[in-house]
Design a protein around this nucleic acid. Structure first.
Lengths: 201, 201, 201, 201
DNA sequence: CATGAATGAGTATTCATTCAT
DNA sequence: TATGAATGAATACTCATTCAT
């Protein structure tokens, strides 16, 4: 019965995905230490034991989520944006639009940003600028900023520092999204203003 | 022996203060669930039992720290600033200077901001805008922003939203301060730019 | 699967009963403070954590046991005896027979009597005669004693005091049962003699 | 300064006595495990540390108290009573008078009886009749009982069992004395009746 | 000597993980 | 495969003992 075999595998994959998705949100909201397996399982809607059929331990589940956090899809999109034939101002506006849209539409995106930022911060081993700056997302953003500074549309300052500032603000509103319900988010324009000079002058 | 009695009380107060100060940093870095009493005591440099001579439980210690988080001193300073006879631009620049200075000089300040923000976020009971906006700090900042908008130096937008944005960025760099050592902080000017229009136009 | 559901509930109830029964013995022998959860669990033959699936705390477990101590079954039996159409002498003899029999057969009964008496004594709040005398068992016993005094078979004296004396002696031999193995218990006749005049005169 | 030396020694002895006396009461009421050094010291009216100037440990303090429990004075008195030229009935009545009097007058006596009985019961090592029956007090009481049985004034039954019964009842009312305030104690006559036949027949 | 604050070994309780069903 | 009851290692908290004053 190859059909049933396949279907089984499919269901397995679906469950695994659901666990990852729901856990990401839960971990983002409560942190690793603040997350109890019993609560997590209840939240997902499965038995505690079931979790251990898919992941060896709480630690491993978290690692797997952490890995998802550096979404290659997001990096790819960012890379495409970088190479589009348009002004840096336009690129930054498009990026900000896209980010704010995802934050509003997709809880998972907020969770991803949150976890990613927190993990960067907690990188105990090498808590130096170097570690953080190695992030691909940062590097690409940096390049867009350099382009903008050349074009005169982006404020002065160390590009890396500005990139970090920009993504820091994204983290800020990812947190808002995760924790509060009726929250007044900033607009895409507010986010862009971290980098862009006043266009009305 | 009144001298000894006094001195004893004094030492007690000192120890209590040290516990509160060190615990604030530890909780800010690790969260409530991520803080083990054994580690915390070691960090402070006292025995585990000693903690319980000063605080009934981990929970109570945390509550006491949480209470310290809304420093009346900071609020008073902000209030004085609000009523000084100067432009909003100047007020915001002074405020940003003062904040960045405290962040650099004083780990406790960073911890205070961090815990305060996190507690605002986690306010489970009423996760609505109302709860957060009631914070005195927000209200005073809002007034300065209104002044600035009238004067034309502050960007357009809902004053409350802008105040929240401003303090959000402060939180962001409080986190940086707590977690990373050789980190490139933003300048006071970068912080002010959240609110102030470009002065060079 | 109603069968399995039912069976599960059944097992749960059995475990709970076993914990209560074994704990009663252990507490009766060692007192509340002298009972360690680790030892208690080992004695019962379950893990320490399991105890906490059935009872919130050591204190709650003890309270639940304490509640069992005023067995309504024993009170009902005593009440039936009170109203049987027979002489007080006969009633007292039957009661003594029944008590000594239970003490010999059933460790739980000895534990129940022991805990009940100790709790009456430790009643910190109102350590007056009134509290103790309110016990239903004492009141019924008192009535039988009154009947006996009218019939001339029971010794003179305040009925309540005599009831207390009688149950005190029961407590005495409950202790013997709990603590010593090869102990020479008194006979049912010895117990009855606390109340009954010498029948051979 | 030999005078001061002496006086010092004297004070030391007084404090030691007070500790022993008060601790005896406290241990009798609360048991070994239920007694906290901090509470005990407060009760005695000394500092916790002071206790350790007089006794090496809680255990040693308890042992010392336990030793006091087999008061040689009581045994001597009982021995004198045994050899007085009088009937067993008279001896038992005098003994009961003396016991009830001490119970009423002297909290320490009640504590002594209580601790002594409890220690006999808890004798884990050899919980056999033999251990208990070796007690000198029991042996002397047994002899008086034998005399009484010969004289026809004491009820039939194994003398040792009757002695145990008699002292058991004493224990019962020592407990009453320790725990309740306005309690109706039995009379000396009630106590004697455990052993003596009805004299009025 | 007397004290009570400080300590850490010991005890109560929680929670990640296992396992019988 | 899915479950949740059972487990014991890990964590919070208590208390006998020590020690600086």
């Amino acid at each position: 019965m190859p059909k049933s075999q396949e279907r089984c595998q499919e269901i397995r994959e679906e469950t695994r995905s659901k666990i990852l998705k729901d856990s990401m949100l839960y971990f983002a909201r409560n942190g690793f230490a603040g997350t109890k397996i019993s609560d997590l399982a209840k939240q997902i809607g499965i038995g505690q034991g079931t979790l251990y059929l898919y992941f060896k331990s709480k630690e491993e589940l978290f690692q797997e989520i952490a890995a998802l956090t550096n979404s290659s899809k997001d990096i790819a999109e960012l890379n495409i944006l970088l190479h589009l034939p348009m002004s840096a101002r336009k690129k930054i506006q498009k990026l900000s639009d896209s980010i704010m849209d995802k934050l509003l539409q997709d809880d998972s995106y907020a969770a991803k940003v949150t976890l990613n930022t927190q993990m960067m911060l907690e990188q105990k081993d090498l808590p130096s600028a170097e570690t953080i700056y190695q992030s691909e997302v940062y590097q690409i953003t940096e390049k867009i900023i350099r382009q903008g500074q050349k074009e005169g549309s982006v404020v002065e300052g160390l590009p890396l520092k500005l990139a970090d500032y920009y993504w820091g603000v994204v983290y800020l509103y990812a947190l808002r999204k995760l924790f509060t319900t009726k929250y007044e988010m900033i607009s895409s324009g507010d986010l862009s203003r971290v980098l862009l000079k006043d266009s009305t002058k």
